[in-house]
Amino acid sequence: MMDKSWRISLSNITNLTIKKCVPSGAFWMSRLPVGCWTLTILHSSLKMLRSHSNFNHKSTQQGNDTVCEDLSMLSTAMQKLYTKLKAVQLWDLFINLEMRLCPILAVMEKEGVKINVAKLAECTNVLRKKLQDIEKRAHETAGHPFVLSSLAQTREVLFNELKLDEKYQGSTKLARTQVNNFKSTSESVLQHLQDLHPLPRIILEHRQIMKLKSTYVDGILSFVENGCLYTTWQHTAAATGRLTSANPNIQNIPKQPCTVTVADKIVCKDKEDTVYTILAREPFISEDGWSFVAADFQSIELRLLAHLSEDPTLLAVFQKPDCNDIFCRAGFTMAE
């Protein structure tokens, strides 16, 4: 947490850096890494940042003064970056688009996303019970207990005890590990072996449920604070310009439901049967009085192609208000 002296010093340094860099004095200039990323997406922003400023300088100051001294070096770096962005006509993109996104992302990180913690806890209980049922079936099938999450123990049971690799007659060679050349227990290998014995199919099911629980339920719960999930929105991580999130990554939450059958109805006391449908996105809820809105560009790549090529056929396709399927309409029009 920054104290008052830190905030004042940081503000002064930022203003000093900006006034020396650009005539407009816009505060957007404080995000130097974004400028490096805009200038050279395919190269390391950090490397460029270091090359533009003396970050190897060893300060004799301590505490907040050390940080302020380092920040004062941004002036030289920003002057160089300003010149480079201007030279390749990227300054307007940087200042009017990229930098204006920074405060929005800051607010998104600060506000977080509201989470139905009770729903996540319920999902955790269901999945834990399901994993226990799967482990019990696996032990009965193998004839003795073993740790399903242990690759070494799984390899021992599948290949040394059941010898499924010797029974396999498929044309595709079973994969081996890159390290030590062990027999692999990967998903593709288990899929090849699942018709030879019930155990590979059980292990696949266990891994699916385990991933759902550890990544999309427990993994989300560990980042929830006061009923809200706080993630880090990364502006410069993707070369395509897309936003990414980390700690946790909430952009890959599966849309498809996962149906599990549990034997203990106590876990699903609100259900009349033992079938429980888990929607990984269901715990994400809006604030009271607000709603989630999903919006996306339709066929953005084709729209860019039509704009840049000025192809009359493509332009005509997008100008039709009743066109719901751009690909079908474009193919039909070109066929004509």
Rank of each mutant, 00 (worst) to 15 (best):
N180Q: 02
Q298R: 04
L304C: 14
E140R: 13
A138L: 03
T261V: 09
N247R: 10
A295R: 15
V126A: 02
L120K: 09
I253H: 14
R128G: 04
P33G: 08
Y82R: 07
L74K: 12
E287D: 06
P33V: 03
T274E: 00
K269H: 05
Y82V: 01
L304T: 11
S214P: 11
P103Q: 08
T244G: 11
M78F: 06
C268M: 07
R128I: 10
I202S: 07
M78D: 07
Q234L: 15
A335Q: 13
T274P: 00
S44E: 00
G241T: 08
L304P: 02
E287Q: 12
M48I: 09
H206L: 15
P283F: 01
Q61Y: 11
L174N: 08
A175D: 03
G143P: 02
S72G: 15
N56R: 14
S5F: 09
K211Q: 11
I253W: 07
A239I: 06
K255H: 12
F327T: 11
S9H: 08
T17W: 07
L10I: 14
D273Q: 09
T333I: 11
K119D: 00
N15C: 01
L308T: 06
K4C: 08
A330P: 04
Y276Q: 03
M48S: 07
K4Y: 07
Y216H: 07
F146Y: 07
V107P: 05
L174C: 04
S53D: 05
D218C: 15
L174P: 02
R50C: 06
S245T: 12
S5L: 12
I134M: 10
D3V: 03
D296A: 05
K130L: 09
N64V: 15
R50D: 04
E205N: 13
S72W: 09
G219Q: 04
T236V: 13
N125L: 00
M1P: 15
M334Y: 15
L212D: 10
T231L: 15
L193P: 00
L308K: 13
S184K: 03
I18F: 05
P257L: 02
V224L: 12
D322E: 03
C328W: 05
C21V: 05
Q191F: 03
D218P: 14
L97P: 00
